[in-house]
Simulated scan of single mutants.
Amino acid sequence: MDIGSAVKFPTEDEKWIAKVVIGGILSIIPIVNLLVTGFYLKTMEKAIKGSPGMPEWEGWGELFVKGLLATIICFIYLLIPLIVVTVAVVMVGGLASTVTADTFPNIFAMFSAIIIGGILAIIFGFFIPMALAMYVASGSVGNAFKPGELISRIKSVLGDYILAYVVIFVLMVVLSLISAIPLLGWIIAIFGGFYIGVVAMNIFGNLYVASNA
């Protein structure tokens, strides 16, 4: 997999700047940002169908529905890490309200739970791109939850899949660091985040095509 070409993929569209500007603006509006998620999936769909490229900003209803369904799929996959963190925070909060002599163990336990939840989120999140590709390719949400096929497809392209996941993760971490820059960093993060999302969906769409069930 050519990472350099993959990262430059959006710039191959002659209207890529306008599309990124629209995507960045929509991404910061609650609920409306489901359109952005739908756009990502349309990007993945084009890759799977063999006509890679950024889609047009059109068919808003379809984009919204796809974005909503994708969000539900992601939520279900991340439900276990969310439950772990939530339960831990609630339990530690309850202990802290009754035990005041030494709060350090409570704080340590809470942060440990958050760290474990974060690790679980990374692990479960590893499966999400392929799960979304399985949904996009079939049009059925149920196909996103076929563990046998999911694992088989990932295993068949494991090296490139891990590389893609790590590269996207690192890009997002770098972007989050840039966002700490007053004002300018926040602006870069908004549009950069959308750009990276498009890159990721194109990469994983291509990996789905190369995979075997």
Rank of each mutant, 00 (worst) to 15 (best):
L82Y: 02
L82Q: 02
L82M: 05
I83H: 03
I83G: 03
I83Y: 04
I83W: 04
V84Y: 00
V84L: 05
V84M: 00
V85A: 10
T86Q: 01
V87G: 08
A88V: 13
A88S: 14
A88T: 13
A88H: 08
A88G: 13
V89R: 08
V89L: 10
V89T: 07
V90Y: 15
V90E: 09
V90D: 06
M91E: 10
M91S: 09
M91V: 09
V92Y: 14
V92G: 14
V92F: 14
G93H: 07
G93V: 07
G94W: 10
L95P: 03
L95G: 11
A96W: 11
A96V: 07
S97L: 05
T98H: 13
T98R: 15
V99Y: 07
V99N: 09
V99G: 03
T100R: 06
T100Y: 13
A101Q: 14
A101D: 11
D102H: 12
D102C: 12
D102P: 06
T103N: 13
T103I: 15
T103S: 14
T103A: 13
F104N: 12
F104M: 15
P105T: 02
N106D: 11
N106H: 15
N106Y: 15
I107C: 03
I107K: 01
I107R: 01
F108S: 12
A109E: 01
A109H: 02
A109W: 01
A109Q: 02
A109F: 02
A109T: 04
M110H: 09
A113T: 05
A113Y: 04
I115W: 02
I115F: 03
I115V: 07
I116W: 00
I116E: 01
I116R: 00
I116P: 00
I116G: 00
G117H: 03
G117A: 07
G118N: 05
G118Y: 03
I119N: 04
I119C: 00
L120D: 05
A121K: 03
A121C: 03
A121R: 04
I122M: 14
I122A: 15
I122P: 05
I122D: 09
I122R: 12
I122T: 10
I123Y: 14
I123W: 13
I123N: 10
F124K: 10
F124Y: 12
F124R: 13
F124P: 10
G125S: 14
F126K: 08
F127H: 12
F127Y: 15
F127T: 08
I128C: 14
I128K: 15
P129V: 09
P129T: 07
P129L: 10
P129I: 11
M130Q: 11
M130L: 13
M130E: 09
M130V: 07
A131G: 09
A131N: 08
A131W: 09
L132R: 04
L132Y: 06
L132W: 05
A133P: 07
A133C: 07
A133D: 02
M134V: 00
M134F: 04
Y135E: 10
Y135L: 04
A137P: 00
A137N: 02
S138C: 04
S138Y: 01
G139S: 06
G139P: 08
S140F: 02
S140K: 14
V141N: 03
V141S: 02
V141K: 01
A144I: 06
A144R: 08
F145D: 07
F145L: 09
